[in-house]
Write a protein that binds this DNA or RNA. Structure first.
Lengths: 355, 355
DNA sequence: GAGCTGGACTAATGCGTATTAGTAATCATT
DNA sequence: AATGATTACTAATACGCATTAGTCCAGCTC
């Protein structure tokens, strides 16, 4: 244990023949203001180098100071096995900005229990307060913990959520993005657009649907063929009905439904995008998958970057606890968007391949 | 910002009409041993509930010496852009074990300068010190910094390197692995095996070559056709010579050379593996690439896991600073290994595709 | 030569906790 | 009635740091 004893300010003070106070002054940059001579300052810095001194995080945060640590907490494991994990890009962004701002990152792994779930207060201890502040991300919510954290006045920022009052957040504008998808389809000539989703659940889903509906009616006189299904229920008959009723484009809520739609399309003999344009609103982390479909994507890297900046601003008192940062969504490419051409085609293979 | 100060043990003590010491005893479970009456304990617990008490980690670790933080340091950014980044699997393993051992992870981002390189002592201060210990990984070495760190007596573990005396490391057994490759080829019937590498450089390369040579001679009477080249220099003529001299299998040092060999093979008209078995010794992070070649792979996840365990053991004083942990390599699959059949084939496409 | 000013520091304190060394009261033993 | 043991606590301290309130001394003024 004593083998790894770390030098303290007192050790430095001893070596440099000054008091611990003076050392602290030099470290916190208040030396000039107080009036410590240049010689003494150099002597102290030399001693620090010699002993390899680093401030003790615990002690620092104990008495209220900053320690340059930014926490990252998710309610799921941070590095799940799959390489194209959804969180990866967020972390890339977070790390980038941390580098730029000279902060270090703490990944709270200790909050995970044997059951795989993560809970801030699992052990009855809030480990988070070791860091200056925390960025929280994750699909699973744990509202009671978030509320408690907020009540404690602990500084943190949410990524992707906007539903907790009094907590700054960084998110993407789903309403606008869904509207932009409508614009894109309408400007290509589509008038009858279907909307395919699972039964409603999360707020992003609600926002996307809202954005879709609003823009549809704003663009006027457009038929909407809306359907909420579970993937397994998506039978080809639905698609056949949609095509028969003149639908030329379908907006699809998520990736899983794309797969279902793809197979239905090849059943029914509909060529995408020749006979049916398709846009996906939530592509998840499937960016790397070969088949290219037009889809919105959450600017995960950018959200990660912003979250760090927002947290720092919060710590600096530059923004209030109700700060909202909304980053535009990345709009879909034209892979599966074409001008409408009604009717069924003869040869229409699957874009995703067999299975 | 109506931030309420978090209750401390003293607040509880006041409410429960006892001393702070008693509260601490109850919390740490030493109450029984010391002999605090049941009534008093209940009174204290009630007070804790009432005030919503949570222990302060900082204060705890302040007097305990440890803070439960394990540092991770690389000389490159931890989360580079590509999702199949080489570090990812190490991190997955590190996180897994951190979860199991209840430790948190610190990613040192602040050590990166504007030029993109990372240096522990960049700021003149050893930030690493804020963690209980550090796991260092990375291809680029920065020997002087590592040496200095060691000289300071700072506890850390190296992944993938074994060349710094007095520092525990976790690595994979390249000598044995290269030998196993020879075994595998010989047992399939190969007698004349080529070895293709770039000019020697790193110690892993040396170990692999050594393992190859030793096992080759141990297996007796086997011709080795060895060649060290830069990728650009790998002309088809070399392969033609090798085939002409009866070589039926080639052991290739790394992924880049595989690409070169692949195109040479299709130039020369050699079918892999029908006419030439190929095994790659260092597949890097290309696991996700479509084409399947027989190759060794570094058990990155497992190395990550072990490194955390080793660091903890080091901190506990259970192992010495010269501890070596060697994990077996993952042996190649049979994708490009076949029984030898001499001669050139007519139709032999590229396994990697055009380019 | 008493009082003042400013430069260059230091002693003392508190943050929240765990631990060590007590204390004070009751009870049991001889 | 004195001694010892047990019960149920508490006072004091240390951890490493930042901060507040000084101290000490040289140089200057009137």
């Amino acid at each position: 244990m004593s083998r790894f004893a770390k030098p303290s300010q007192r050790d430095i003070a001893r070596l440099a023949q000054v008091s611990q106070t003076t050392v602290s002054m030099v470290i916190t940059g208040k030396a000039e203001a107080i009036g410590i001579s240049y010689d003494t300052q150099e002597r102290i810095r030399q001693a620090m180098r010699e002993l390899g001194y680093t401030p003790n995080v615990a002690a620092r945060s104990l008495q209220g100071g900053r320690n340059g640590l930014i926490g990252v907490h998710t309610f799921e494991p941070v590095f799940p096995v799959s390489a194209d994990d959804y969180f990866h890009q967020f972390l890339v962004g977070i790390e980038q900005m941390a580098v730029e701002l000279g902060q270090d990152l703490v990944l709270f792994a200790s909050t995970q229990g044997a059951d795989g779930t993560r809970s801030i207060y699992r052990t009855g201890v809030n480990r988070l307060n070791l860091a200056d502040g925390v960025i929280m991300l994750g699909i699973e919510k744990n509202d009671s913990e978030v509320a408690r954290l907020r009540a404690e006045g602990y500084p943190f920022v949410l990524i992707g959520r906007r539903d907790v009052a009094g907590v700054p957040f960084v998110t993407t504008d789903y309403v606008e993005a869904a509207g932009a998808v409508v614009d894109q389809l309408v400007s290509r000539g589509h008038r009858s657009i279907g909307y395919l989703a699972r039964p409603l659940d999360t707020s992003p889903q609600n926002e996307r649907r809202e954005g879709f509906r609003e823009r549809m009616s704003a663009r006027g006189a457009i038929t909407v063929f809306e359907r909420f299904v579970e993937p397994a229920d998506l039978v080809s008959s639905w698609l056949r009905d949609a095509m028969a009723s003149g639908t030329t484009a379908i907006v699809v809520e998520n990736y899983e439904l794309i797969a279902a739609l793809d197979s239905a399309a090849s059943d029914v003999g509909v060529a995408i995008p020749e006979h049916l344009s398709v846009v996906c609103l939530d592509w998840g982390a499937h960016d790397l998958n070969g088949a290219a479909w037009s889809h919105l994507s959450v600017p995960r890297r950018e959200l990660g970057r912003r979250s760090v900046a927002v947290l720092m601003a919060l710590l600096e008192g530059e923004i209030g606890p109700d700060h909202a940062e909304v980053v535009p969504c990345e709009l879909p490419g034209s892979a599966t968007i074409a001008a409408p051409r009604s009717g069924l085609g003869a040869d229409s293979g699957s874009r995703l391949g067999p299975r």
